[in-house]
Structure formats: structure tokens, C-alpha cells
């Protein structure tokens, strides 16, 4: 563990908590892409199956359980509890165009052709594009509530901090994982446009 990864995990946790609070407090999921949240649940499910097979640390196991619970909790709030506020009309990104290429790519490019490894690789690829429906929805509605933009800023920062973690681990532990690094860079680059808007003028209330 290093400070970059710890800050990244905290930023990730913060993003998920901000989202849950936004939906719970406003009792509305307006402006939030349910499709992205479904993709995140698939990402965590595919990646954290090793919860049952390999124990890394209490921190690792607890965080995995928190991310899984929060992502399914968000889906419950969006599609069941506050279903009426879900904005179907603007949440239209075709997620099959994200899932299928990730499935194919994880079968072609991976570290080891075993079920858990393929699922992990699939989850890494899918996570890098999982935010696209949300960014697409924000661009379509032309605005985002300030709380939603804070959510996106925290979520985008988490993987950017992980890139610093990978640089640190490369020099300090000569450990690196090309698949995670390339996907992490793609994921962070997708936020660049949003980061620019968020930092320059705060995209809410346009």
C-alpha cells in the first residue's frame, strides 16, 4: 500500500458515498446514468469474485464488500425505490457496445487464460469505459447538479491517483501490470474533458 493508492481508494469510496447521499437525500436519481451504475456493478462483481478464494488483507476484503454493496445499493435506489425519477430519455448509451468488445478483448489479451483471470481482465477493460453512459448523459442534458459533478470528479480522480500508484510501484517495487495501466490511462483520459469543465467553470447550472 502507498499514499497514492490509499488516496485513490478514499476518492473512490467518497464518490460512491456522494452518489448514494445525493440519491437518498434528494430522493431522486435525476441526471444519474443507471446504465453506468449497472456497468459498475458488473465490474465489481467480475473483479471481486476472488473475495472467496484469496485473502489479501482485512482492508482489501472490507473495501471490496463496501464497493459491491454500494453499487448494488445504488442500483436498488435507482431502479426500484426512486424509479420514478430515473431519466430514461437521456440515459440511452448502448452499453452492449461496451460490454461485448470488453468480453472479446479480455479473451484475446490477458495474463492467463483462466476463469478468474479472464473475469478480472474483463472487469478492468469494462471499468475503463463504464463512465461513458454517464458522461454521454451529462453532455446530452448539457448540465449536471453540482453534487453530480463532485461525484464525477472524485470518481475520475480515483483512477488518476492509481496511475501515480502504478508509477510508484514500478520504481519502488518494480511491480507493474500493463493491462491495468493501459486501461487506467484510457479511463482517466475519458474524464479529461469533464475535469476541464469542472475546474474551469463548474459545469452545473449552465
Amino acid at each position: 500500500m502507498n499514499v497514492f493508492r490509499l488516496l485513490g481508494d478514499i476518492s473512490h469510496l467518497l464518490a460512491i458515498i456522494i452518489l448514494l447521499l445525493k440519491i437518498w437525500k434528494t430522493r431522486s436519481c435525476a441526471g444519474i446514468s443507471g446504465r453506468s451504475q449497472v456497468l459498475f456493478a458488473v465490474v465489481y462483481t467480475a473483479r471481486y469474485l476472488d473475495l472467496f478464494t484469496s485473502y489479501i488483507s482485512a482492508y482489501n476484503s472490507i473495501m471490496k464488500l463496501v464497493f459491491l454493496a454500494a453499487s448494488y445499493g445504488t442500483i436498488y435506489l435507482m431502479f426500484i425505490k426512486f424509479k420514478a425519477s430515473y431519466d430514461h430519455n437521456h440515459d440511452t448509451f448502448r452499453i452492449e457496445f461496451l460490454i461485448l468488445p470488453c468480453v472479446l478483448l479480455s479473451l484475446l489479451i490477458n495474463h492467463e487464460f483462466s476463469p478468474l483471470e479472464i473475469l478480472w481482465t474483463f472487469s478492468i477493460y469494462l471499468e475503463s469505459v463504464a463512465i461513458l453512459p454517464q458522461l454521454f448523459m451529462v453532455s446530452k442534458t448539457g448540465e449536471a447538479e453540482s453534487i453530480t459533478s463532485h461525484y464525477l470528479f472524485a470518481l475520475g480522480s480515483y483512477r488518476a491517483l492509481y496511475i501515480l500508484n502504478w508509477i510508484y510501484r514500478y520504481y519502488a517495487e518494480s511491480h507493474y501490470d500493463v493491462i491495468a495501466i493501459v486501461a487506467g490511462i484510457v479511463q482517466t483520459v475519458l474524464y479529461c474533458d469533464f475535469f476541464y469543465l469542472y475546474i474551469t467553470k463548474g459545469i452545473y447550472g449552465q
Binding site: R5, D9, H12, D50, S54, I56, S57, N60, M63, K64, F67, H111, E112, S114, L116, E117, W120, Y162, N165, H175, D177, A180
Partner: peptide, 10 residues
């Protein structure tokens, strides 16, 4: 080569 038990990241 990176394998499963190396996966200590979230």
C-alpha cells in the same frame, strides 16, 4: 508475470 495472488489492488 503478473498472476492472481499479485492482485492486491482493488
Amino acid at each position: 508475470d503478473v498472476n492472481l495472488d499479485d492482485k492486491d489492488e482493488l
